[in-house]
Design a protein around this nucleic acid. Sequence first.
RNA 1: GGGCGAAUAACUCAGUUGGUAGAGUGCAACCCUUACAAGGUUGAAGUCACAGGUUCGAGCCCUGUUUCGCCCA
Length: 959
Amino acid sequence: MSSESLEKGYEPSGIEEKWYRYWLEKGFFAAQDKSDQKAFSIVIPPPNVTGVLHMGHALNITIQDIMCRYRRLCGDNVLWMPGTDHAGIATQNVVEKNLANQGITRDQLGREKFVEAVWKWREESGGAIINQLKRLGASCDWDRERFTMDQGLSDAVRKVFVRLYRDGLIYQGQYIINWCPRCRTALADLEVDHEEHDSFLYYIRYPFEGSSGGKEGLVVATTRPETMFGDTAVAINPDDERYKSLTETKVRLPLTDRIIPVIKDGYVDTAFGTGALKVTPAHDPNDFNLGETHGLERIKVIDDDGIMTEQAGEKFKGLDRFECRKKAVKELEDLGLIVKTEPLKNSVGHCYRCKTVVEPSLSKQWFVKAGPLAKVAADAVRDGKTRIIPANWAKTYFDWLDNIQDWCISRQIWWGHRIPVWKCLECDQIMVEEVDPDKCSLCGSSDIVQESDVLDTWFSSALWPFSTMGWPEDTELLKTFYPTNVLVTGFDILFFWVARMMMMGTRFMGEIPFKDVYIHALVRDEHGKKMSKSKGNVIDPLKVIDEYGADAFRFTLAVFAAQGRDVRMSQERVEGYRHFVNKLWNAARFAMIHFKDDKENGDGHENASSLPANEMNLKCQDQDATPGGQIYKSDGCGGEADKIAVSQEPDGGINKTDSGNCCCSADCIASMESSCSITEKWILSRSCATAAAVRAGIENYRFNEAAGAIYQFIWHEFCDWYLEAAKPALYEKEGRARRIAVKTVLGKVLKDILLMLHPFMPFVTEEIWNALPMVTGSIMEARYPDCNITGQRFRNTDIEQQMSFVFDLVSSVRNIRGEMNIQPAMQLNVTFCTEDGEEQRLIRENSGLVKNLARLESLYLSETDSVPPSCATAVVKATTIYVSLKGVIDFEKEEQRLEKEIGKVTKELISVSKRLSNESFLDKAPDDVVEKVKEQQQMLQEKSDTLKSNLERIKKMKA
RNA sequence: GGGCGAAUAACUCAGUUGGUAGAGUGCAACCCUUACAAGGUUGAAGUCACAGGUUCGAGCCCUGUUUCGCCCA
């Protein structure tokens, strides 16, 4: 396949792989540790090593890639740091499951062998998601890929643990934590998902100590009767009227022989149940707190597997906790102690990894004292050191940090960073060390053991922005790229990860980890539902890429990534943007036909024309061997230096511009300005405006606006109007100078389009770029169209307004054609009447253009209102358009058309006039607004008058 | 229970200091016009959820209501 003749339809497969490989070979994604260029850095939110690419990743990666590619086009030294996290629980679960298939448990294997098995798994199938990110076109600096279990990152973890411990910010203690009986580990509060469940509220009578049956006692309400064996009190609110006269101080715990006290505490909610609360300090966090203040005993009745302990008594021990609930209720019913049962919706915690119902349980764990760290992290945002975008997420961030609970960081699993704490079995000395000790620091005994727990995965993820750059070493990379410019992530890990990175970054680097946090939307299905395997509404990004191409997919994500809104993804959307890719492709094909025309036409400048043709042939041949290989490396035409490569070319002194295949720089165009028509000036101006809009969109995280701007420009300005307008000149119907000028402008605008679009659609833009004869090298080496200094000189809003008048003339004629059902093949005769000198000039100068685009046989310009017979009419500004329809006019239809138009104008006119007759409007509204409305009124009035007189004329002719 | 957000054309969504509503898709009609039928031209279509308020003027600001979604407890 040669790029010389682009295929009729764009086929992404093959092309994407080709360019991705090429970029990697060329090292275009590599960051410089040290450079004079401006630095720009992002660390990737490390995907879970067990993960597979889903829509959330796709959006996240696409946004980051857009920013990184854009910054490279701006000439920045870009670091996009990739990697994965070791996902302790999830990974251990996966490997355990694999072992289970072979009939092996991890205990049979032993810790060391098991960890080896996990590493082996990670080598074989752990990095799958990394290759999937590459399919998207992610331009990460892959040579720097990191993993949270790497040596360097593990060193960082250990150092941080030891320092926090010595600073008194890490401690070990007996507290209620969330226990997953299936994973057999503690979980942090955040790792518990709460779900509404239909359950029952059981009202159970606890008889008074001295009572002999009957109805005496306190009735407690609970959703968890199985925990009653661990009750060590019943609590009531001292202000509760119902219990004001209560004299009993003890109750008998049913199904046991225990007597427990009645305590009073303002914590008890009088509105819930009966106002009497059973207190189970070992199995409920709030009860635990009550137990602390009242010095209650803690009795654990559910073990680490979710099975009832001996404490539950002979009848119940060994039962599963839910079985026990049923049995206990049955027994209580038999004893007549269940007063009533009512249905209740309550929120039940589940393990976020395996969905098992979490058991709040008393346990000895390691915690991070989060308060002091959280304050600094919150202040960094309050002080504006870090911006959260969109800003409303800052509130959520503050709410969490300001009410933060201590963070349980120990996990009873084997896969992860083992806690660097040792205990001497001789003297009980505790050692917390960066380097493994071999003997007790106190008594010198070598009988020491290391803590068996590992750290929460998020503990290591929290260090990601600096641990990946080499911390604790003081590396060049850190100096150049820390703090990073922006963190891009979904709000679902705002607490898990963002807040914790802020805590650790400020603590250990003394500086925030990122200047901006951009929180993007969640991707949902087309009906707004969260995608999940169980719902079966998951769309696989890889299948989407296979079917529509990565470019179309990425563009779709960008278009729908409006701030603060969820993205609803559906295949049809992607299909729509595949059409857009194809549109661009065909526009480029069209341009290519004209760029290479010289060779085939042999237009009398053999020497001149043979060079670019040869150049292209060489490039194309070469491309088959190594994609985008470069024969000529001329800096002049690379992009940034908008310079003409004239005298540098060894082509016998013949100016490349003469051939028509110059480098299409801004200077080239300036040199042939006299041959440019208003249409060329217009498209150059619009191209400038679009480049600025795309730049602003990307820099302000308004990716949908950037994508929208370029879509609109390419399709509806460049393709719909400019290419159509340029055709006569390109086919040399307006002379040679015109053809060369138009070709040059076409080349310049196409180049700029590719550059603006490249961050969104890297593959197709590179493919087209390499087919262009006027550039060398990769599009990744070029510079973004300069829209602030030299490039901006093409911006001309006067020209834009003039052109919009001309286009309106064309549209009006087309409208008449459409509404009157006149065949496209029929050539029309049109007269434009206007007394406005400027409008006359524009019509005169663009008569060829209008004739061509509106398909006119003849075009007349009349300075006075001379009405041709039998015609349909339209009004644009001060110009009346008469479309002669001698013999074919349908008076009825024309009458209806004019009436409809008059109706529209009248409606507007009424609203405008109403405002102008309102004195307080004239009085209080700003002058420029009033002036604008007045102008509007005048314009509408004139239009209305003209339309009405035309309607009268038609009515007369009809009669 | 606390917090956040959404409600705009048939559908999905834009709408950045308040100036009188836009796009894509879909729909209808016509057209294979020398890049593209994955296309072109034209057209129809909205009480901006509801009720108040501020203002000369509200899709936008304020208050309340309804419906839906999410987060936290």
